[in-house]
Amino acid sequence: MNRHLSWFGITSLTLGLAFMYLPILVLVIYSFNDSEMITLWSHPSLRWYEKLFTDGNYWGPAWTTLRISLVSSVLATILGVMISLVVTRMRKFKGRSLFVGMTIAPLVLPEVITGLALLLLFIAMGVERGFMTVIIAHTTFAMCFVSVIVTARMAEFDMSTEEAARDLGCGPVMAFFHATLPAILPAIVAAFLLAFALSLDNLVVTTFTTGPGITTLPMRVFSEIRTGVKPEINALSTMVILLVTCVAITSSLLTKRSAAKRVAAADSPPATSQLASA
């Protein structure tokens, strides 16, 4: 679509972006506010950042969250790519429709249900809940997001490249790694980032599947903000926003370099744009 941007369009875009950014901006501004009372502006200071760094309350959970997210997003990426391979390459095997259904179902279930179901499984199995159970839970829903993104890219992939590699003497596995993988790598990286972000951010499923002693950052933040405004959370939010911005800009620069032609698809969150085109 290539059309004239009308005044109505400009207005709604401006208002929309303002709506999206003003709350975040307010958080960032107030994180530099010295006052104990969040809303009264006294003078700028880094007091809450200092508190955040000296207060051990957030570092432990942050480290736990990071470890969980790293392990689960790596697992989810591997399993998700396997799912995509099965879905796109293996047209016939027993229980295929059940398989495909199971890879989509976690995407369309509210988190409370997934969390409850997994918790009941862990209890029935008599597994001690903690680090591992959270990783399993995060992997289970993240792998489905990974497979949606990677499947969409693989469906567009021209198989003749891989066939050429086979003709040139590669085995099926080598052909995949040399011909297909480089082509779908941007999708895999995007999927990995999404899996990582989903895991970092998750509260509901984590709360259901975690055990004593394992508290993630979202759980800590949630229990803090339930009782109202906490200035140090403003500082924490600002740091998260800064981090996300840096990662987003870096990854967009990388994708621009590697696949300039797929601009639109690479920049929108792949899951949603793929679902739209599916």
Binding site: I38, T39, P218, I225, V240, I241, V244, A248, S268, P269
Partner: peptide
Amino acid sequence: IMAINLTFWCSFLIRIYAWIVLLGNQGV
């Protein structure tokens, strides 16, 4: 798209928390 994407990638909890800061009785 990048601009909207960016807000989406910021933590869900943080984005909801921003509204507590804005809407509270002593809010902004």
